[in-house]
């Protein structure tokens, strides 16, 4: 699995992804890790299928006992189905996850790990002095959903917002925003169910200073591409990527019912 450092000062951010050993047919994912002193947080650590590669990659940076916290933005299997495997190695770690999903996430073979439910309004995690904000992103796309903002590094880990489904081995950062739009348009129209939730999130996120927007699939946005993305997303109608009803047929059926 490819490991890329995206911020390295007093604390560090790494992104893991583009796994050449990934099983065919499963969607590629980005996993993130924040190291702050002797504490480490794994963000959306991934599904069962990427666990071995992910653990191997992580061991190049930290000792297992230094991984003290896990974060799951929501309950999807590509986000956290590896939980039952991680907890064998991290029996003392805590899992921060939206309160609505705790009972569901436990289906991923989790028996020992301590759950820290995140309230709907979000909260702050103190990772060895580094303040990380859990930003509400409900209905983007899950009904309980958070992103993680690091004001020091000016990075927003944005879960499925900004995601693109791409071919294996795609670059880690967006290089041409206009060309990238095609890769993410359908994903956002289909996976994001609510314009109101989207607008709510846009307002919240526009108040943040962001150098890197880091989604869970596809390429990361940096610099001006972050604002380009927010503008594009704001203008996009979502929750509509379903086939149009065949109106002629429907009308004909209605008329047939009415005349019978």
């Amino acid at each position: 699995m490819k490991s890329t450092s995206i911020y390295s000062e007093k604390h560090q951010w790494h992104v893991f992804g583009r796994d050449p050993k990934k099983v065919d047919g499963i969607v590629d994912t980005n996993q993130y890790m924040i190291q702050s002193g002797d504490r480490t947080l794994l963000l959306d650590p991934g599904g069962i299928e990427v666990f071995a590669s992910m653990l191997t990659a992580v061991l190049h940076h930290v000792r297992l006992e230094e991984i003290t916290d896990l974060f799951a933005s929501h309950q999807d299997p590509d986000i956290i189905s590896s939980l039952g495997l991680w907890e064998q190695a991290l029996p003392h770690a805590r899992l921060h996850t939206p309160w609505v999903w705790e009972g569901f996430i436990r289906h991923f073979g989790s028996k020992k790990i301590e759950y820290v439910p995140i309230p709907d309004e979000g909260e702050i995690l103190d990772l060895n002095g580094l303040k990380l904000r859990f930003i509400p992103a409900h209905y983007l796309h899950a009904s309980g959903n958070f992103h993680v903002y690091d004001a020091k590094a000016k990075i927003l880990m944005s879960g499925d917002v900004g995601a693109a489904l791409e071919e294996p081995g795609a670059p880690m950062f967006v290089e041409n925003f206009e060309r990238h739009v095609d890769k993410m348009k359908l994903f956002h129209q289909r996976w994001m169910p609510s314009n109101r939730a989207k607008q709510d999130w846009i307002c919240r996120v526009r108040e943040l200073e962001i150098d890197i927007l880091a989604p869970q699939h596809g390429r990361l946005f940096k610099g001006e591409d972050v604002q380009r993305f927010l503008d594009w997303f704001e203008a996009l109608e979502v929750g509509l990527a379903i086939p149009e009803p065949a109106s002629d047929t429907a009308e004909a059926e209605l008329e047939a019912v009415a005349s019978s």
Partner: peptide, 12 residues
């Protein structure tokens, strides 16, 4: 086995 060259493999 896969992580044999990783710095922190001993923690496994």
């Amino acid at each position: 086995k896969d992580a044999e060259d990783a710095t922190h493999v001993a923690s496994l």
